[in-house]
Design a protein around this nucleic acid. Structure first.
Length: 922
DNA sequence: GTGGGCCCGTAC
DNA sequence: GACGTACGGGCCCACG
């Protein structure tokens, strides 16, 4: 379907002017607002709409001024620095091939409204691009709202409801009630978004609210009655007209070819280097992006924008169905080997009979060297009537020289899995050069999914064949080895083909962002084989000991359960928060002091602690909970996870697991093994070194706090680290004005809570809760802290501002975290995004550093593989298993490499422990 | 039966 | 509403 984008030029210009710093070009001409608008336009055009209009206000009075003399009366004249940017803006819009509309007697809003509805009637998809919430009144099927500067999108009644708490058809009444100070339209005094939404929910529309006014209670009722006479006028003023007589219809607004020469001159004049670079030296600039990814090599073939691309901004050829070959004969295999030999880089993928890479058996291999073509080589399909396949060994032997050659570049999607499978079938993959999952992750870690199906949809507009479609799901699922070869081939060859196509698109996007490409190339890709080795190494556990612990825990749980039954007067399920809530708060009448996010009375630890003085039961529940958690999550589970082939536990590390760049771990998660309580530490004791070996745990001391010192450059905090071992004590001494040795335990505890809390963007409220002090005192602590470490406060504010202006924050190494909610209307979401903006540079930089250290250490370990192995990573800690006689050498080398993984303004200290088990090694 | 939301709790 | 990033277990309800 063709698309029309209506751009609210005036609104963007004003918003960019106020949101961005007062930039200027070399000649001193102001460019800040222009820069924002140009970025917005470039983003809009990347979506390749067929029709576009840039609508601005015409000078002079409009019909609204006739209706209401005071309309916009208190609006200051346009600042000179902004006025100076209007003409350049129009020049750039023209050069981009976009029509500019300016209609006298009405506002830009009315022109947009009229065109939007006309276009929707005409069967076009309409996108209104604006920063103005008033347009929400136009949202309906076929008409969506986007704010390209913030990335927000309002595309349905549900989305309007979500943002404003009213339906799209109630927006006019909603605005009429609230009024608009900027336009000098007074609404009902003290009636903001909340009240307006509440009334409309109750009385449906403005007429309903007006009818209910006489009986409305309180001050707000008086205010409403006072405002009654002007509400109909308000409604008229905020209603966007959709019946303006226009010279052009929607279909007259076709996007024209852009004038590259003019654009280049304009971009150069105003210093827009990124935009200029995108134009490049290519004759047809609009296709510059495409040229890099084009299958047809059409560098000069400027495809008209709005071509029938199935997804926004993609090359149609990249979304077409491919042609796939099933390799069943030696001749076919040989032909493919030759094809791979001639390729600069090829994509490969394995099919197996299980998800667990450490157990799965190879069923087939797929390959691709050019987009749209692919092969599947089945080697393990086994079902009645299955065709004869090439012997697995013959296939592996034929491919081995290619897969093991470090000089021959390979590409995959989540290739770590395939590396495991192939290793377990006798092939050591080398030269694994690119991974589309990691490309996607580095480009935008906030996108939660980086699986191939999602990427294909997102970047190619291509709908892949799903695993479930060929193998079924749930109880009806069959192993891939029993899937018919023809079906399997269509599915599997597509995987390799799509991986290749995705790489064309993603690598081009990375190339446009050098700092991200560096993160991808220098941190993430080198880490892949390292993680594969750590996972393959696995860790030895004492399963018998864990089973003993399970029995012990069970006995204690039973005792707690009996006690609980006695105290409650009847049996109930202690594992059920719902039943527990009924017992505590309904039957026993204890106060429900804490609520869950959904408003239910909470039974979490904090809530139970709060009522533990009043009744015995809460303590018993807490005891039970602690035991149950340890048993179900750890002592019962871990023995089940021992791999029968290796006798060890092999976790999976997810490289695209956490948006900040941290790894995550699952199946089992070995990054949350207990450490704080005695019972918990017993579990760590079951992570053991085999006879003759020892475990060594090396962790970065206070790495995130050190990074905060580095990034903020705060002299006081830097000094605290230089002073020595205990930074919390040093902080307490500084904040409370004591000598180091005079710091009391309470002062140290407070300093520690502040240090940690700050890194998470915690408020005085949170600190008060944490320390059990009142809010005023917590506020005093924070103020005192910031007075001693002012650069820390500046750093945090800088991160908030950067997040708001750029939409993302960065780590020391250039990794980016986009904050999608940084401009959310919902205050809670927005505040959360601000906290994440503060935390991400520290957490993410720590992640970058330990990843670099892992690659470095792994490089050294390659020559000592029989004496020492890396076996675990827990965010700031690396765990090794080594021959007892080798431990000292290992310790010196690992500590040196970990410390050298970054060069900060404070020392990067590593603490090491050694023992027979993981607990002892701490 | 299964999938998913919710609540809770473990780690850094 | 109020502290960032994860994973996972049990409950419980909707759904097929």
């Amino acid at each position: 379907m063709s698309r029309l984008v209506l751009i609210d030029g005036s609104s963007y210009l004003y918003r960019a002017f106020h949101a961005l710093p007062p930039l200027s070009n070399a000649a001193g001409e102001p460019t800040g607002a222009l820069f924002g608008v140009v970025n917005m336009l470039r983003a809009t055009l990347k979506e390749k709409p067929e029709y576009v209009a840039f609508v601005v206000d015409a000078p002079g009075k409009t019909f609204r001024d006739e209706m209401y003399a005071e309309y916009k009366a208190n609006r200051p004249p346009m600042p000179d620095d902004l006025r100076a940017q209007v003409q350049p803006m129009c020049d750039i819009v023209q050069a981009l091939g976009i029509d500019i509309l300016r209609v006298e007697g009405v506002e830009a809003d009315d022109v947009i409204g009229t065109l939007a509805l006309a276009a929707a009637r005409d069967g076009l998809e309409v996108t209104i691009s604006t920063g103005d919430k008033d347009f929400a009144q136009l949202v309906r099927p076929g008409v969506v709202l986007v704010n390209t500067m913030t990335g927000s999108r309002t595309d349905s009644d549900a989305a309007v409801m979500d943002k404003f708490g009213v339906r799209a058809d109630q927006i006019v009444d909603y605005l009429a009630l609230m009024g608009d100070t900027v336009d000098n339209v007074p609404g009902v005094e003290k009636c903001g978004p909340k009240t307006a939404a509440k009334w409309l929910a109750e009385y449906n529309d403005l007429d309903g609210v007006i009818a209910a006014a006489p009986t409305m209670k309180g001050k707000i009722g008086e205010n409403l009655r006072a405002a009654l006479p002007r509400l109909p006028l308000n409604r008229a003023l905020v209603t966007i007209r959709t019946d303006v007589a226009l010279e052009q219809g929607p279909r007259d607004l076709q996007l024209r070819e852009q004038d590259a020469d003019s654009l280049r001159a304009l971009y150069a004049r105003y210093g827009f280097t990124q935009a200029l670079r995108e134009l490049g030296g290519v004759a047809a600039p609009a296709a510059a992006d495409d040229a890099k990814v084009s299958l047809r090599g059409t560098a000069a073939g400027y495809a008209k924008a709005g071509d029938t691309a199935p997804a926004a901004g993609t090359d149609p050829a990249l979304a077409a169905k491919g042609e796939y070959e099933t390799v069943l004969t030696a001749g076919q295999l040989q032909a493919w080997v030759e094809r791979l030999q001639g390729a600069e880089e090829f994509a490969f993928d394995t099919e197996t009979d299980a998800l667990d890479a450490m157990r799965a058996n190879l069923v087939g291999i797929s390959l691709a060297v050019e987009p749209g073509k692919g092969a599947y080589i089945p080697v393990g399909h086994d079902y009645p009537g299955a065709p004869a396949q090439l012997p697995m060994q013959q296939v592996l032997d034929a491919l081995r020289p290619l897969l093991e050659d470090a000089g021959r570049k390979k590409l995959g999607q989540h290739g770590k899995y395939d590396i495991h499978v192939l290793r377990r079938h006798g092939i050591q993959v080398r030269g694994y050069a690119d991974d589309t999952m990691l490309e996607s992750f580095v480009l935008n870690s906030t996108a939660t999914r980086h699986d191939m199906d999602s990427l294909a949809q997102r970047y190619l507009g291509y709908t892949t064949t799903k695993f479930e479609e060929v193998a079924g799901k749930g109880a009806k699922q069959i192993p891939f080895s029993q899937v018919g070869i023809d079906e399997a081939s269509a599915y599997a060859a597509e995987d390799a083909d799509i991986t290749l196509r995705l790489h064309r698109v993603l690598s081009a996007q990375l190339a446009a962002e050098p700092s991200l490409e560096k993160v991808y190339r220098e941190i993430e890709m080198p880490l892949v084989p390292v993680l594969a080795r750590i996972e393959a190494n696995g860790v030895a556990i004492d399963a018998a000991e864990l089973k003993r612990q399970s029995s012990d825990l069970s006995a204690r749980m039973l005792a707690a359960q009996q006690k609980a039954t006695e105290l409650a007067g009847h049996t109930f399920n202690l594992d059920s928060p719902k039943q527990l809530q009924a017992v505590l708060f309904d039957e026993l009448g204890l106060p429900a002091l804490v609520k869950t996010p959904k408003g239910q009375p909470s039974t979490n630890e904090e809530a139970l602690e709060a009522i533990a003085e009043q009744h015995e039961l809460p303590r018993v529940i807490l005891e039970y909970r602690g035991l149950a958690k340890l048993r179900s999550t750890y002592t019962d589970k871990l023995p089940e996870m021992v791999n029968p082939d290796t006798g060890r536990v092999h976790t999976s590390y997810h490289q695209s697991g956490a948006a900040t760049g941290r790894l995550s771990s699952s199946d089992p998660n070995l990054q949350n093994i207990p450490i704080r309580t005695e019972d918990g530490r017993r579990i760590r004791q079951a992570f053991v070194a085999p006879p003759g070996r020892k475990l060594m745990a090396c962790d970065y001391s206070q790495i995130e706090l050190r990074i905060m010192a580095h990034l903020s450059e705060d002299p006081g905090l830097i000094r605290a680290f230089e002073q020595g071992a205990d930074v919390h004590r040093a902080t307490a001494a500084e904040v409370f004005g004591r000598a180091l040795e005079e710091v009391t335990p309470n002062e140290r505890r407070a300093a520690k809570a502040i240090n940690f809390g700050l890194m998470y963007g915690m408020s005085a409220f949170g600190l008060a809760k944490n320390l059990g002090i009142d809010r005023g005192q917590a506020q005093d602590y924070v103020a005192l802290y910031f007075s001693r470490y002012p650069a820390v406060r500046d750093f945090m504010e800088r991160m908030r501002v950067q997040a708001r202006e750029q939409g993302y924050v960065e780590t020391l190494f250039g990794r980016r975290l986009y904050l999608n909610d940084i401009h959310a209307r919902n205050q809670g979401l927005r505040a959360g995004a601000e906290r994440a903006a503060i935390n991400a540079p520290m957490q993410g930089t720590a992640a970058d550093i330990i990843k670099r250290a892992m690659v470095s250490v792994d490089g050294w370990l390659a020559d000592h593989a029989d004496r020492a192995r890396m076996i675990l990573q827990v965010h700031d800690e690396l765990v090794f298993e080594a021959d007892s006689a080798f431990i000292q050498t290992l310790q010196a080398e690992v500590e040196a490499r970990m410390s050298a993984a970054a060069n900060l303004r404070v020392p990067l200290v590593v603490d090491t422990g050694i023992g027979e088990n993981w607990d002892e090694a701490h």
